[in-house]
Design a protein around this nucleic acid. Structure first.
Length: 581
RNA sequence: GCCCCCGUAGCUCAGUGGAUAGAGCAGUGGUUUCCUAAACCAUGUGCGCAAGUUCGAUUCUUGCCGGGGGCACCA
């Protein structure tokens, strides 16, 4: 268990003060303790007094006065000033000594600072993301899903949850057959069939399948899918996105057979290659069959016109959905149902599906299916990532490169680099459309936020390295006081655990990017106003400011780590240009 | 028609039930004997419209307007 952060301790004190004033009762919503928008309002402001009029039977300013008395007593010398302001806010200003102690606690926590905030509420989470069709390269939509999903996984893990990352491979059904037929057509030097796959990559993949022109089309499809999955895996790894498991849709339809471990990769088990087909000679029901049996038990299915329906309507969907067509073939939805049955039985506390914008129509039916399977609706979340529009100097970017009608993840990475690509895809809320201008993103300059943040990290590292070597600079030392810039920076560092908690709770890794940028700006002000290595600076001042640097760089590294963006030791133009080339 | 997302500064977007709504970019004007100038400073009368809930709404609810997307016994 990590020790409480300085801010948590302060919250506890505030809570005590509230209880003191109310005589033991708490307001419905917890009081805020936040940085006020204006510096003149102190280090922290709380709305506590405005939450208590009904409990206390007094007006907010009056309550604020009483809270103020209690806080003054509890905090003693740590409290430099406390004021009642506006409609009942309490503005607190802490002493330099308090700040110094808080900073020491941050350094003591080291790399663990800000982690494990979930505490006892930590969950085992199944996180599915990307899940492109394995019939082509990872495209721009998949890139956003990959950036968002991997960063969300990093964020939730950092916060203390246990996250299982999974990619669902749609290796079953009509599209697979069509892909096989397209591959074979290319191998024969023909055009793909009506509605088939057109991209140049189809020809390329076909050329890597031995005798693709003459073998049974099913085999061609299987090999083609395997090649595409391998290619996607490589693209995603280069994009710093990895999975604990690639789950095969096809496996859901295979007989599981006796003794075949049904759910080998639950939260308690080591990662395994679950989702692989059962033994070749396995018999018995498939997982789809098992899921159907569960639905039937729950009384959620019925037959009509020869087809098997799931009554999702009674669970909030627009209409009931077909599981098995009249001709006996299961629908794609049947796979989805079985897949979620599998996730459920594997025993996670929570299931999160990250889906592309084109899948939002599935939300209602998947939630309904999850509930129909006996799941708790509060335990499944479907997050929809919105579209990415690419621009080139304000013009809509031409979408056709080598992958057909879409831009591939590989093309994006080759163009602007992994760091910029991840940053631009992650800096915005997942549910807003992104207009990404490649000219801006390519810019290897501090005008580009991603490099600005990296530069802040590199600059601090440089200071720390020089300090370790005992270096001083010939600069004029300042008076060594704790000035406004230093204070602001420390307060920003102290906000990190709250930022993580909020971002995790909201499934919002973009908040980490926003925070990182503001922390980098806070450091720039500190760097401008505070000498660190100047010769003639008192040793205690130098030590204190080096501590500020150490704490800041640790938080920046953690933030960039969550985003999957490199935190470099140094930056220089030559390297940047080489990387971009 | 129904459903989902969005509508905040010139542009791209953060943000919040509360005290004077922010950042980046672009623009303008400055700064370099500088721990990396890949820097810094100054400069901004903006929450689509209308009701409702609230002590207080840009934030929550409803309606409308505008933009994007989705509505298969395809995957």
């Amino acid at each position: 268990m990590t020790s409480p952060s300085p801010l948590q301790r302060l919250r506890t004190v505030l809570d005590d003060a509230v209880l003191n004033v109310t005589g033991g009762e708490r307001p419905k919503s917890a009081p805020t303790l936040e940085r006020p928008k204006q510096a003149a309002h102190g280090d922290y402001a709380t709305n506590a007094a405005m939450l208590l009029p009904k409990l206390v039977g007094a007006a907010p300013p009056m309550i604020a006065e009483r809270l103020s008395v209690a806080l003054t007593e509890y905090l003693g010398d740590d409290l430099q000033a406390i004021d009642v302001a506006g409609p009942g806010f309490l503005n607190l200003r802490l002493s330099d000594a308090w700040l110094a102690r808080a900073l020491a606690q941050v350094l003591e926590a080291g790399d663990a600072y800000g982690t494990a905030g979930a505490g006892d509420a930590a969950e085992a989470i199944h996180l599915e993301f990307v899940s492109n069709n394995p019939t082509g390269p990872v495209h721009i939509g998949g890139a956003r899903g990959a950036a968002f999903g991997s960063a969300l996984a990093n964020l939730l893990t950092f916060h203390g949850h246990r996250v299982h990352r999974e990619y669902y491979v749609n290796d079953h059904g009509n599209q697979v057959e069509l892909f096989g037929a397209s591959l074979q057509a290319r191998a024969r030097g023909e055009e793909p069939p009506e509605g088939g796959y057109q991209g140049d990559y189809v020809t390329e993949v076909a050329s890597r399948i031995p005798e693709a022109a003459t073998r049974p089309v099913g085999e061609v499809a299987t090999e083609g899918i395997a090649l595409m999955v391998a290619a996607q895996k490589a693209s995603l790894e280069a994009f710093r996105t990895t999975f604990d498991q690639w789950f095969s849709e096809r496996s859901l339809h295979a007989p599981r057979g006796d003794g075949n471990p049904t759910h080998p990769s639950g939260p308690g088990a080591p990662d395994a290659t679950a989702g692989a087909d059962g033994p070749a000679d396995a018999t018995g029901p498939s997982e789809v069959d098992e899921a159907f049996a569960v639905l039937a038990e729950q009384g959620r299915t019925y037959e009509r016109d020869g087809a098997l329906f799931l009554s999702t309507t009674e669970l909030g969907d627009d209409k009931d959905r077909v599981l098995v067509r009249a001709d006996g073939r299961p629908t794609y939805f049947a796979s989805d149902v079985a897949y979620h049955h599998d996730k459920r039985v594997r025993g996670y506390d929570r299931v999160i599906d990250v889906l592309g914008a084109d899948h939002h129509g599935y939300v209602a039916r998947i939630e309904a299916a999850f509930e129909a399977l006996g799941g708790d609706r509060d335990r499944i979340e479907l997050l929809i990532t919105q579209f990415v529009n690419l621009f080139e100097a304000g013009e809509r970017a031409k979408m056709s490169k080598r992958a057909g009608e879409f831009v591939a993840l590989d093309d994006l990475v080759a163009d602007i680099g992994v760091d910029a690509a991840r940053w631009y895809l992650l800096a915005r809320s997942h549910d807003t459309t992104i207009d990404l201008d490649l000219v801006d993103a390519r810019e290897q300059a501090p005008e580009n936020p991603v490099y600005y943040v990296q530069y802040a990290h590199a600059r601090i590292r440089s200071i720390l390295v020089r300090a370790d070597a005992g270096e001083t600079t010939a600069r004029e030392p300042d008076d060594g006081s704790v000035n406004a810039s230093e204070r602001e920076l420390v307060l920003a560092v102290l906000a990190w655990p709250d930022e993580v908690a909020e971002a995790a709770a909201r499934r919002a890794p973009h908040r980490i990017a926003t925070y990182a940028l503001s922390l980098a700006r806070g450091f720039a002000a500190f760097y401008r106003d505070c000498e660190v290595l100047a010769e003639g600076l008192p040793a205690d001042v130098r030590a204190r400011r080096l501590d500020v640097c150490s704490a800041t760089v640790a938080v920046l590294a953690s933030a960039l780590g969550i985003l999957g963006v490199d935190a470099p030791e140094r930056m220089d133009r030559e390297h940047a240009e080489v990387d971009a080339a």
